[in-house]
């Protein structure tokens, strides 16, 4: 390995630095999940198990919502799969950037692939190359923040009763809007942004949630593929 120990500790520092500012944005989202889950009759052990093994906020909300209704278990699992389907695209996109990961680091690392983890890892891969130390530092920080916020919510749910008072109910969409802009230097950013917005909105109002995420996303991918030009053949000699 050509990497010195110094670059590893730098990777860890950078990984922490890059996700630290967003922890306060995610915390209320996790806290409210813990509070709602307990309110719905889950034990704190079950809340913890869900966050520890699923680690996907939006789908945990979907699961909770459906558990309160009288629907068959398989349909709950299917809903979770549908909400999380975007992760297939994340891990496919990131697959090309894991050259410095050992096999077990790939299989364990992909478990941590939440939205902000994907966005920061993908950005890191483009600027510095993606190394395991960076990936696991940011991923484990997001993971522990998620578990901690759920535990706090499950214990002290009442404190979070009116998250709308502080705009906390809407902090994640605001954060995601900023994340998107971080990719504005990528090729064909604007056309992809416009088509994904349009198709997502149409899908949301026709087929319905959560399909707007996957279908709107795939529309952007198809446009990117159509607009892509073959790499310029190199003229040798």
């Amino acid at each position: 390995m050509t990497l010195s120990d110094g670059s590893r500790s730098q990777d860890i520092k950078d990984g922490i630095r890059d996700v630290l500012p967003i922890l306060p944005a995610i915390f209320p989202f996790g806290g409210v999940f813990g509070a709602l889950a307990v309110e719905q009759g889950l034990s704190s052990g079950e809340v913890f198990l869900a966050s520890m093994t699923i680690f996907a906020g939006a789908s945990q909300y979907a699961m909770l919502d459906l558990m309160g209704q009288n629907v068959p278990a398989w349909s709950i699992v299917l809903a979770v799969f549908a909400v999380n389907f975007r992760h297939v695209l994340y891990s496919a996109s990131l697959a090309r950037k894991l050259a410095q990961f050992k096999p077990w680091q790939r299989w364990v690392g992909m478990f941590l692939l939440v939205d902000p983890q994907f966005a920061t890892a993908d950005t890191r891969a483009a600027t510095h190359g993606l190394r395991p130390a960076y990936f696991f530092a940011s991923g484990l920080l997001l993971y522990s923040n998620w578990l901690f916020s759920n535990a706090v919510g499950a214990q002290f749910g009442a404190l979070l009763e009116n998250p709308a008072d502080y705009g906390l109910d809407f902090i994640l969409p605001i954060y995601f809007a900023g994340l998107v802009m971080g990719f504005h230097k990528r090729p064909r950013f604007l056309p992809i942004l416009l088509i994904s917005t349009a198709v997502s909105l149409v899908t949301y109002h026709t087929i319905g949630s959560p399909w707007h995420i996957s279908i709107g996303g795939v529309a952007g991918l198809i446009l990117a593929a159509i607009l892509s030009k073959p790499p310029v053949a190199r003229v040798d000699g």
Binding site: S93, V180, F189, S196, T197, S200, S214, G217, G220, L221
Partner: peptide
């Protein structure tokens, strides 16, 4: 295009 497209659709 995955980060731009999927996060936008989200």
């Amino acid at each position: 295009a995955v980060p731009t497209a999927v996060l936008t659709a989200l």
